[in-house]
Design a protein around this nucleic acid. Sequence first.
DNA 1: TTGTAGGCGTTATCAG
DNA 2: CTGATAACGCCTACAA
Lengths: 345, 345
Amino acid sequence: MKKKITLKQIARELEVSISTVSKALKNSKEISKDTTEKIQAFAKLYHYKPNNIALSLKNKRTRNIGVIIPDIVHHFFTTVFRGIEQYADTKGYNVIACVSDESFEKEVINMEMLANGSIDGFILALSAETQQKKDFHHLMEIIDQGMPLVLFDRVADEVVCDKVVINDFEASYMATKKLIENGRKRIALITTESYLNVSEKRAQGYYKALKDHDLELDENLILRLPYQFEDEKKSEAFFASTIMDAVLCVNEIFAVRAMRIAQGNGKKIPEDIAFIGFTDGILSKLANPALTSIAQHGEQMGKVAAKMLIEKIERDDEIQQVESFKTAVIEATLIERESTINQIK
Amino acid sequence: MKKKITLKQIARELEVSISTVSKALKNSKEISKDTTEKIQAFAKLYHYKPNNIALSLKNKRTRNIGVIIPDIVHHFFTTVFRGIEQYADTKGYNVIACVSDESFEKEVINMEMLANGSIDGFILALSAETQQKKDFHHLMEIIDQGMPLVLFDRVADEVVCDKVVINDFEASYMATKKLIENGRKRIALITTESYLNVSEKRAQGYYKALKDHDLELDENLILRLPYQFEDEKKSEAFFASTIMDAVLCVNEIFAVRAMRIAQGNGKKIPEDIAFIGFTDGILSKLANPALTSIAQHGEQMGKVAAKMLIEKIERDDEIQQVESFKTAVIEATLIERESTINQIK
DNA sequence: TTGTAGGCGTTATCAG
DNA sequence: CTGATAACGCCTACAA
């Protein structure tokens, strides 16, 4: 077993000084061709690679970026992560991933862990609990330390930093409008219980679309489910007791579950009830019938977020200019599938 | 903006030496109560936290573990990742995640990046390409350097290290047997084209079960699909031209797609055709009908892998004992759902 | 052309 | 009780 070799060892073996080795490996022309070749040959033989940790300590840059997502089960976060990872990779950055599990405390702990030198910047989506508590101290502190931060999707106005979001309001409006234009009159909304900013915005788009088309807002048509660990009881009761001809869901999991329940009740999709979900993931594509859904372009979001972050990191190094923060808005797209085939009753 | 504070700065402010500060913060009883309190108060005020990078350099331990998965879209890898992350978290380790995208080259590059000091050990599942090429140099080198390594799921006999797998052969045998006992006679197998060790083992289990029950192995009943980016043509042709009354699929994505095609052809599931898939993920649960599938217990696999790795890391520190490698086998479980309701024709 | 010295932030050992 | 020093691995300005 041969442990990784260091400059020092090479120097000793070759009876030169450490700095000579260092320079030779960087092809510095300070060093004679002879020694350079000798050193490089030796280094290659022993697979010399500079130690990242030492470099980080010296340069105060780790080339790591920290990503904290609330949940890895939701396909959307997975795709964002992949986008981040891909972009980071092209720029020579690694991604350190943590999952907050929608918990405020885990979010704080993870951030503290990473903030102590492990990374050059953060990309994160707020946990549900953090959004409920509206406690952003940990984020403020990070910003205060001058560490670049990009929030995506689950965002808060109180936190001043770069952000990447989709146009939730407009997307939801558009989807609802589509249903109305298809002749649907009783359009239900299935959303989350807790106050996630995204669900809220999506609900607003839904309200507005109803209003603009002279449909009244019926609270009985709105079902609020816990974000996680939902038993199906509540949904089943909802479908048993409510008359509707369309459903808009704030994520694809809700949508696919709801479709199953409706089908279980003998409803035909889309003839009796049309469905639209948010998040255009595998579930939507492979559902039966395939689910019309709003693509959030997670991968692209990830790329944009990573790009913003890395630019900030690398700019930081140079001139400390006046801080300016951008919010990038990714345009959502409606992907039409079988669950909303144009079908006016 | 206040950058992170260091021991040195505290020392200067309080006009003591760096080592005094260091000791005081560790409650060393070498230091008087007075100064200790003064220093700790000051440190708390400025949110002092030791710099991880400096610690890593000194201790030659990073408390990071590197995870490389082939693909983040397959739910299975996601759950394994989550298991790793959870366990690592409890032990104070971070997880650095990379995705090889099933590419040999990306696997090598990612490993090299991480191996240079960023992490204390690896957990990985081989990329499809690596399994095809059977080139394991990069892994050998890692092992040779004395860095702990745990392989999971996508494993190779040539690489001598700790491993975590499921009993693919037995699980597949069990599933096939179940179908046979339900009266199915023409059982198809949908598997991957390239030689993934897991697919191979699953196929073996299928063969054996057929043989043990005096069913002949009909090559026409076997469909080999590319692992990724499959268009549906091949599957459609298969279903159009083949008579079968049951299908075993090596992953849930194949299974759900196949079910859709069969349904499109007017087949009833499970009456006409029964389906069983591997990977008991969201897709299986929310498919319509719900898919009977073999739970690979990814989260548990992740936990076991992380446990094995961390134990090795921490043991390494102490005595360099004779190397011994374990292979943990996680028992797969058959989860019965609607796609195989007991129904002898 | 090569080598020395100092420093990145921390801890441990040893001296005062 | 407190402080100076060396070391982890690397880089670089500045001697020699």
